[in-house]
Simulated scan of single mutants.
Amino acid sequence: MPADAASPPDPGQRRRLPRIRARLHELYYGHSDRSVRFRLTVITLDLVMIAFFIAAPLLRETPAFLFVDYTMAVVLATDLAARAIASDNLGAWLRRPVSWIDLFVLLTLLFPLWLFNLAFLRVLRLWTLIHSEFFWDTVGRRYNETRWEDVIRAASTLVTFVFIMTGFVYSSFARTEGIGGYLDALYFTIATLTTTGFGDITLPGTWGRMISIVTMLTGITLFVRLAQALFRPYKIRFTCPTCGLRRHDVDAVHCKACGELLNIPNDDEF
């Protein structure tokens, strides 16, 4: 055989990737105790990462900031690579808006000094985590058909909005009149969102007034959404096989929309 002839592919190497993909798919989407423990670990790391994102403006001047930032980048990159390998369709995974958000967050972690003014958008990972089936199939797998799913989703949306607006105000108006630091931006956001209107901190100019209006209107909407999730009559999620209605009374026997006979499982069967 000529010395420059291509060597045949290693059969073991050809089998290794499908084996790794199958193992990662089981860890990320399986229902075994091992899979649940793995996903709980991933979710815990996500929450630690989100806490760092929220506190980053306060930690930026500390010596350990870049070390923690790049450590988070390695963790997130590893998680995204594992999710991509575990997915059934890589193209579909890349087309998901959630994947775009995660890749953008990774980019801000890799270039923290250049993209710091956009780093407040990292908090979107809180919203994507709490609204993911990955979270509810793990943490809330026995409760994801109750009102608590709606309450936690609504609360996460409100918290995400608060810190995104805080980061936006801080990056746009830092060291201007009234906004001397991150805590001032958070104070302004909370006071405006709740329409308290103390008036001791205001944003200058027309642009500042527009931001205040958007904060107030969006905040009221999110508060109403959270209140609805907390106080509306308790419904259970079960898709009617005939008309597709998803919300029914807990003791419903027939669908209120079409009269179809329902067979809603008990709570311990979810």
Rank of each mutant, 00 (worst) to 15 (best):
E177I: 06
I179R: 01
L203D: 02
R142W: 08
T146G: 11
A119P: 03
T192A: 11
T166W: 00
T239H: 12
R142D: 05
L203I: 01
I211K: 02
D200V: 08
E133N: 14
F188V: 05
T176Q: 08
G167A: 03
P241V: 08
A185M: 02
T202L: 09
G197M: 09
R175Q: 14
A229P: 05
A229V: 04
Y143F: 15
R175G: 07
L203G: 02
T192W: 05
A191Y: 12
A191M: 12
E133Y: 15
L129T: 12
V169T: 02
G181A: 02
G208T: 00
V123A: 05
I190H: 04
L113N: 11
Y143K: 13
V159M: 02
R141M: 06
Y143L: 15
S172D: 05
D150T: 04
S172K: 01
F238M: 07
T196Q: 15
R122W: 07
L113A: 13
L124F: 11
L124V: 06
V214H: 08
T192N: 12
T206L: 11
L217S: 11
G219S: 01
M216T: 00
R153H: 02
V159W: 03
T242G: 10
R142S: 13
F135A: 03
R237L: 09
V224K: 08
W148Y: 11
R142F: 11
Y182T: 07
F135D: 01
A154P: 01
C240N: 11
M165I: 07
S212N: 05
G180L: 07
D200C: 02
I190M: 10
R125Y: 11
L230E: 08
L230C: 10
R142Y: 11
L203S: 00
T195C: 15
N117A: 11
D137G: 14
L158F: 02
T195N: 13
Y182P: 08
L186K: 04
Q228W: 15
D200H: 09
P112N: 11
Y170F: 12
F238I: 09
T196C: 13
R209W: 03
R125W: 13
L226S: 08
I211D: 02
G197I: 03
T215K: 02
Q228G: 12
S171C: 01
M216Y: 00
I152H: 00
F168G: 01
F173I: 00
C240G: 08
P241T: 10
V162L: 00
W127Y: 13
L183T: 13
R147M: 15
T189N: 09
L193H: 05
F238C: 07
Y182D: 06
L230M: 15
S212P: 00
V151K: 06
V139M: 15
P241F: 10
G181N: 08
M165Y: 05
L183E: 01
W207G: 00
G178A: 05
R142T: 15
